[in-house]
Design a protein around this nucleic acid. Structure first.
Lengths: 190, 190
DNA sequence: TTCTAATCTGGACACATGTCCAGTCAGGTG
DNA sequence: CACCTGACTGGACATGTGTCCAGATTAGAA
């Protein structure tokens, strides 16, 4: 459930392979929007990409890997963090930025939550990156000299919100509104 | 993927059905400890319970349902909440109580995180109960007159920790230690 | 004890997942 | 231009999931 190719993803695919991989990801994104993550099959994605399923599996270790890869790409296309305002304002902006980014691709958000829990090597690699990305954005917004526990609390609360949205306890649109007062509590009254 | 029987689970199974169901849950618990949640199959559980797989599926809508049902039962056998100490102490105790309870059945904890995201009707029902259980424990520990956002922050941070542990970013044993300072930040220094 | 309705069984079904491999194809190097 | 190597194909395979149903079995009421 992982081959030579997957490990090299994201870096070091030459022309033809890179093209095939991009084609697969684009098809995956379309298919996801078209049929939803429950009904999506890797073979369906392969067909949409005009590629055999064996080829699809050369690049995608699993359905989960596809979702996490798409999510990672979507995430890292997000706008830069605001640098203006008070610490609390910066953190609120960072949270809102991430939340909006996630909310504007709801089918991807719904797909990635379970996918992130997969046990593929590729999923594992990407989820570390994603976690690190969240953490570094919060740390940047907090600035130097912040209590480490505050960053941790933010990260956990944000993950928790993602999980709850993934379980359907809130919509991704509500996330920002529910999170704002929580962030206020965490970043604090100092 | 859901039948008349599942909906009645938890309440209202007469003698024979109740016995069969309990037998299945016990077998599920044993099987889980024996082979882990990845390798567990409903048919394996059925065999261990000495029951046909068709019967197993009469009571268990899915593998996910099994895990969530086991988790719910495990959770609600937990000890009562401490009533002593300051608000912060009570909350710390509540968090630690839940964390310990979860940590002492690691294979179940690992199994339930993905399972909670399932889309079965039975999973949905139980996950609402579980969420409500967490929330009510935190509210009880906070006592009256607490900022609603504090309770929400606690719940989100706790869910987040569960998710991170589920993803393997921390062990269930570490959860309590990582959570303590976070809880301190949230409950506040007043 | 006898009977009947509820419960359980065995096994086949349709479908998805991910793996594998022998063979075909294509593109850029010599 | 011919070739050779890496990329792709088609399809079979083993396994798991959850569903279905006709028939055997059982509990417990009469």
């Amino acid at each position: 459930m992982s081959s030579q190719v997957h490990d090299a993803v994201g870096r070091g695919l030459d022309g033809r392979q890179a093209r095939t991989f991009e084609r697969l990801l684009a098809a995956g994104s379309d298919e996801l929007r078209a049929v939803g993550h429950e009904a999506l099959t890797v073979r369906g994605v392969a067909a949409r990409a005009g590629v055999s399923s064996a080829t699809a599996y050369t690049y995608l270790a699993s359905k989960n890997h596809l979702f996490v890869e798409l999510f990672w790409r979507h995430l890292t296309e997000a706008s830069a963090v605001e640098e203006a305002g008070s610490r609390a304002e910066r953190v609120q902006a960072a949270v809102r930025g991430l939340t909006n980014r996630i909310a504007d691709e709801p089918s991807l958000a719904a797909a990635v939550t379970p996918a992130l829990l997969g046990s593929d090597a590729d999923v594992e690699r990407l989820r570390l990156r994603i976690g690190a990305e969240f953490a570094s954005r919060f740390e940047a917004a907090l600035g130097d000299g912040a209590d480490g526990a505050v960053g941790e609390a933010l990260l956990l609360a944000f993950s928790g919100a993602l999980l709850q949205a993934g379980m359907g306890l809130m919509t991704y649109d509500e996330m920002a509104d529910r999170l704002a007062p929580v962030v206020a509590v965490i970043v604090g009254r100092e």
